[in-house]
């Protein structure tokens, strides 16, 4: 089972590399929706922690257990991979030393391209997206790193 929010608390932790050094952190997201997009329709802006934005260049995405860079997700041939609704997408964020132990304000900004709604609503940076999710508690949570 998942949490009702788009931003998942479960799975929020620092990550270690093969030498045991902390190299980043993980956060889970889900589409609070009736369907998941095909990978080429996924759109991602950032994970933000305490006002620091981590964009696609330092993130990889685990979808159905398989790791993708953002560029790989958007490859045309990856429209044949579907984001399933039964499990989160886990985002791995590269950050030497990870996040400090304690409470953090975490936000995410992601969306999908949907063929059945007008094109003007596709823009993740639109005012409408900001209006819908900018202060939405499902996309912005206080979460503790232990």
């Amino acid at each position: 089972m998942m949490e009702i929010e788009a931003l998942q608390y479960k799975g929020f932790r620092n990550l270690k590399d093969e030498n045991g050094d902390i190299c980043g952190f993980q956060v889970g997201i889900r589409f609070v929706a009736y369907r998941g997009p095909w990978l080429s329709q996924f759109r991602f802006a950032y994970v933000k922690v305490d006002d620091v934005e981590y964009g696609p260049d330092v993130c990889t995405f685990f979808v159905n257990g398989v790791e993708y860079t953002y560029a790989e997700m958007l490859k045309p041939e990856n429209w044949r991979v579907k984001v399933q609704m039964q499990a989160p997408i886990y985002i791995h964020v590269k950050k030497e030393g990870g996040l400090a132990m304690g409470c953090h304000r975490v936000s995410v900004k992601f969306s999908e391209i949907a063929s059945y709604i007008p094109e003007r609503m596709d823009d993740i940076n639109s005012e409408m997206f900001e209006m819908m999710h900018g202060n939405d508690p499902a996309y912005n949570r206080d979460m503790i790193i232990v």
């Binding site: 080429s40 329709q41 958007l74 045309p76 949907a114 063929s115």
Partner: peptide, 9 residues
């Protein structure tokens, strides 16, 4: 179901 039209940029 959906017949997608926007799968490619």
């Amino acid at each position: 179901h959906w017949v997608e039209s926007k799968l490619y940029r």
